[in-house]
Nucleic acid binder design. Structure first.
Lengths: 173, 173
DNA sequence: GTCAAATATGCAATAGTATAACAGTCGATA
DNA sequence: TATCGACTGTTATACTATTGCATATTTGAC
């Protein structure tokens, strides 16, 4: 539970890879937590799934399936085909370990896989990095409005594009 | 201005094509308003752009670019190629006459092109119909939360999936 | 341990979505 | 009517994702 809180701080604060961000530590932590989570749930984080997740966590920038494929092809070990990567991504999404970014046809690691959440993605148009926001009030307001029209809400996709803190500084915006 | 209000009612009430919905009238109105709007703005709603918009307004279900293409190919008149359709869609989006549905790779008519708005799409997973919701409070809440992290919000993509009123009834949900 | 069932991966082909590049045409305006 | 800019046609290709089937690996029951 304290872990959840720690992660939430990461999520809200240092998540855009900026000055204070030790990404090696960040990625290592994400991988370790994925291992633990899969263990806990009795699902298998196989070699290929782990490799895909590692590539995704090489940064905070959403990667396309074929970017991932290309990276894996350079590594030693098998050179997987598209279906293999898509199947791995499907598994990782089911486990909440990665999110699909609809506006980019790309995939990004989820920093908070331990908790089910309905997150919003913040996408920097300058550097391409993504961060995740959890803001329930706004979602609830929209859900209420939709239900008031008789629509039963089952899932949310919320993506905000703009400028991350460091790119904002660079652009003087 | 009264027109804006009328449309807002359409938007919020009868927009999912249900019992009380006269779609012929709905589509005709959308086309007429598109004509007027383009006239007003001094941009050209050319033949092909109008045909694409007509196809889109044949219903409230988002259509893929290639669905549109196939429909146009059956009509008399030229049989356009993909770039032609995509260019028409680009124009229609710029004018706010259609929205792209990111989660479906598809396009749907905007019922309220006269006003700039940051809308949310409601997508029925059963019948495929889409409706539009304008709920500013929730958006503002999310924007505030994002800006509090130093992120400058420039654009929103919000899509809610679920069941429209009539499909909800059918499923007993 | 061994076998059957379930799960996961490899592989080839193909479907679906979108854009680049360049040529030609049309329309408004001087 | 000459010209410039906007629009469309056409070909080719890039990018994204899935289907179907064969093979391999793991799991659990016996």
């Amino acid at each position: 539970m304290t872990k959840g809180l720690d992660e939430r701080e990461t999520l809200e604060g240092a998540h855009f890879s900026g000055f204070g961000h030790d990404h090696t530590r960040c990625a290592t932590s994400a991988l370790a937590r994925a291992e633990a989570l899969c263990q806990e749930r009795g699902v298998r984080l196989t070699e290929i799934r782990r490799r895909v997740l590692e590539v995704i966590w090489s940064g905070h920038r959403p990667l396309g399936a074929y970017d991932i494929l290309a990276t894996l092809a350079q590594e030693s070990g098998g050179k997987p085909q598209p279906p293999t990567v898509y199947r791995a991504l499907e598994f990782l999404q089911e486990q909440g370990l990665v999110h699909r970014v609809e506006t980019l046809n790309a995939f990004v690691g989820c920093p908070l896989p331990e908790e089910h959440h309905r997150g919003q993605l913040l996408l920097c148009r300058a550097c391409g990095d993504a961060a995740e926001l959890v803001e329930e009030q706004g979602l609830r307001a929209m859900q209420r409005a939709a239900e008031a029209l008789g629509f039963k809400v089952e899932g949310f996709t919320v993506e905000l594009s703009g400028l991350c803190p460091s790119c904002r500084r660079k652009e003087g915006a």
